[in-house]
């Protein structure tokens, strides 16, 4: 019998632009005794930077519909995207207010869904660190990854901290520890806690500013002499991978920093091939990193 079951929230960017992250996550889950139950008909979270900024009731109603689909599964949500996590956990929080819940459920009438407030949303990091545990993850490692990594945590995973499960969010080390569990060495770098520059509608409306922010982080990572960077948010991942290529073109730089979402790295450690982890689908070649750990695409 499967020990850990979650409603699997995909959002937009993962299934529709970075399906390699979806594929990797679906492959690593059974090894950790995780069952990912589909959220049939789920939509955009919706995007906090744009939709929430425009109209809170629209944002909260669509969020509530997604939460209701998970509730109909009878399972908490597992979410891979920091932005989607930010929306879903804020939705859970806001809908604890009975007046708000009643107003939003009235808007949902006609959709066939009503949210009752019986489930919550958990980010991948919370599931892996708190529900599964480092020891259980380590037991699935057959191919320790001996390489130097820079970690990018992202913004919405930690903040606003009063509606996050972490307690203190300064010097947040959970992602570092999860990478160390796979055999990796964490390298500190300047600007580690800085935003990637993608969120808040910045990447879609102010691409040059957005790319300048990621360029700053890439330069700091380069100075730290890492083999690859690891992230836990697909939108950050997109920014570091596609955005790195765009920044190189825009600023005349030549950054070649391989970018991995955590479940892709975990999959390699569990013995899956780089191709199974979709590492051949990246904009910036992952080949130098794979060569370092004795693999090839």
């Amino acid at each position: 019998m499967v020990k850990h079951r979650y409603s699997f929230f995909l959002g937009c960017v993962i299934p529709n632009r970075l399906p390699q992250i979806e594929a990797a996550t679906r492959l690593i889950a059974p090894k950790l005794d995780i069952e990912l139950v589909e959220m049939k008909g789920a939509s955009c979270c919706p995007a906090p930077g744009v939709i929430k900024s425009f109209d809170k009731d629209t944002w909260l109603s669509i969020t509530a519909r997604n939460l209701a689909i998970a509730e109909e599964n009878g399972l908490d949500i597992l979410v891979l995207c920091n932005g989607c996590y930010g929306t879903l956990i804020a939705g859970v929080h806001d809908l604890k207010d009975p007046v708000t819940l009643k107003r939003i459920n009235k808007i949902l009438k006609g959709t066939g869904h009503q949210f009752q407030g019986r489930i919550t949303a958990k980010h991948l990091v919370e599931v892996l660190y708190n529900d599964i545990g480092k020891e259980a993850i380590e037991e699935t490692v057959v191919n320790p990854i001996d390489a130097r990594f820079a970690i990018h945590i992202g913004c919405h995973l930690l903040k606003p901290s009063d509606i996050r499960p972490w307690g203190v969010v300064e010097d947040f080390t959970l992602v570092d520890e999860l990478v160390e569990t796979l055999g990796g060495t964490i390298v500190d770098y300047k600007l580690k806690d800085m935003c990637c520059g993608a969120g808040g509608g910045l990447r879609s409306a102010e691409l040059e500013v957005s790319l300048d922010m990621v360029r700053e982080k890439l330069e700091a990572m380069k100075q730290a002499k890492i083999d690859a960077m690891v992230n836990v948010c697909n939108f950050c991942h997109l920014q570091f991978d596609l955005g790195q290529m765009q920044a190189n073109k825009h600023f005349g730089t030549d950054y070649q920093i391989p970018v991995l979402y955590y479940t892709q790295l975990l999959g390699l450690a569990q013995g899956f091939t780089p191709k199974q982890m979709g590492l051949d689908k990246h904009y910036i070649s992952v080949a130098p990193f794979l060569e370092k750990i004795g693999m090839s695409v």
Partner: peptide, 27 residues
């Protein structure tokens, strides 16, 4: 990547898109 061509989201359920549009009309 071994996935279905469409994810099991609104993309696979036309009725779900109608539900989103219903919400949009309400607000």
């Amino acid at each position: 990547l071994g996935l279905d061509p469409l994810p099991p989201t609104v993309h696979s359920y036309p009725k779900a898109v109608k539900e989103i549009q219903h919400i949009i009309k309400q607000t």
